[in-house]
Design a protein around this nucleic acid. Structure first.
Lengths: 236, 236
DNA sequence: TTGTATTGTGTAAATTTTACACTATATATT
DNA sequence: AATATATAGTGTAAAATTTACACAATACAA
């Protein structure tokens, strides 16, 4: 068998939801389009699947193009396939979401693509079905960040427990008791004390921790659930 | 803008994991292929996306073709996009999973496709990346069935609590305390007593319940989490 | 030195989960 | 008809977890 005859072949788009955290709120990397179609409107970063390119590689390429970053957390979310989702031509879009550290960005690359970090709360309306993609991605992030400690992917290498606490409040949009949260995180044994303190603080300086990478891998492989009670917040 | 020039267009396959429950164990509807490629081997039911057809509609069509059923629980799982996943031609496959009641099947349609219900524990090796699809689907089913009461989609209209209990044990592959499970399910208010009893039982006949559809909708919309503690069993 | 903001530790009440004893119903067997 | 066996259904207490909040420690500014 050489090929499937009579098959209908379609253009495969990829769109990427890029999450970041600035210490206060959850952010999205969005682009104000300086190209067709829908020039002037806001959208996710996207592209098309190329010949001899795996989906995951294509998503990785698109993320790299915009941010200059490799090896970030990048996971497939879902594929959007309404017939008229793109008025230009029938496409399906395979959507990925990425977690990146905002500081690691190359500002020149960002500016070249007319991209900026937007507070999730201030998100403008996006083109096509991109709003729905963001909604789905946030739900998936909430689920994954409860089951696995992937939130760390949004923080710099060294961080304090209060920073982690603010991150999780931002992800779930709720208040979490600071003291109970701290104890729970410490109990996971995911943190390795560095002995350093957060010198940027204006008040009491918190202890800086780094990720215990072995434990982290164990958690990713299902060794235990990171914060099971948060999974309930990943609902419609 | 009339079309995207220079874009690479690919064949979009769809594959469908169909779960069923026979009262004892979780089953998969698999086909022993009587057509090319990979004739004679086991695989999931699949097909190709057609022109002017939404992904969800295509999945629904494929499910209907095999089972004669409409309006089943059918949810998109993930898209598989390795370059060489199909040796015949480069394709990507959008995978859906369905929950159906085994009794509702049309045996003639099943036989025409050479399809049979196989115990999940006895699953033969499948073609291409279909084994991986099944593994991912089972994980997703475990997650969803913990958060939302979708397990009911696998049971007949009227069922007893012990039947539901056996179903959940089959889904998660663990023993769940019969008595605690029963109380927890009753507490969800998802069950409406019918006053009838399970006459097929050889010993004490259990009370037959039906689903409270309003509550069911509420749970699907995030009103509450069905069985949060089971979510932890949805891990690699 | 005092006031304010934040970090970090202690602890008890409330809730949920877990484990298991016991009763009830139906059929088969003696 | 009595007894044995299997499954359905109810009760309850111990264990574990979650939640709520008191209090102490650190850093800087006024």
């Amino acid at each position: 068998m050489d090929s499937y005859l009579n098959g209908h072949r379609v253009l495969v788009a990829l769109d990427c939801i890029i999450f970041g955290f600035d210490g206060k709120s959850l952010k999205l990397l969005l682009i104000k389009r300086n190209f067709e179609p829908e020039v002037g409107k806001w959208s996710l970063m996207g592209g098309f699947l190329e010949e001899n390119e795996a989906l995951q590689s294509a998503a990785s390429r698109i993320l790299f193009t915009l941010t200059g970053l490799h090896n970030n957390y990048l996971e497939q979310l879902q594929t959007f396939g309404a017939v008229d989702r793109d008025p230009v031509e029938r496409t399906i879009s395979v959507v990925y979401y990425a977690l990146v550290t905002i500081d690691d960005q190359d500002p020149v690359t960002l500016q070249a693509h007319n991209a900026s970090w937007i507070d999730l709360a201030d998100k403008p309306a996006l083109i096509f079905d991109h709003d729905q993609m963001v909604e789905t991605a946030l739900r998936q992030l909430r689920y994954k960040a409860a089951m696995y400690p992937i939130g760390f992917e949004l923080l710099p290498e060294k961080f304090t427990v209060p920073q982690l606490h603010k991150l999780y409040e931002a992800i779930y949009g709720v208040q979490l008791d600071r003291r109970n949260f701290s104890r729970k995180v410490i109990a996971t044994e995911l943190l390795r004390g560095t002995g350093e303190k957060d010198e940027t603080s204006l008040t009491k300086k918190g202890q800086l921790y780094a990720l215990n990478t072995e434990k982290y891998q164990a958690y990713l492989n299902g060794y235990a659930t990171f914060m099971p009670e948060l999974a309930e917040l990943a609902k419609p």
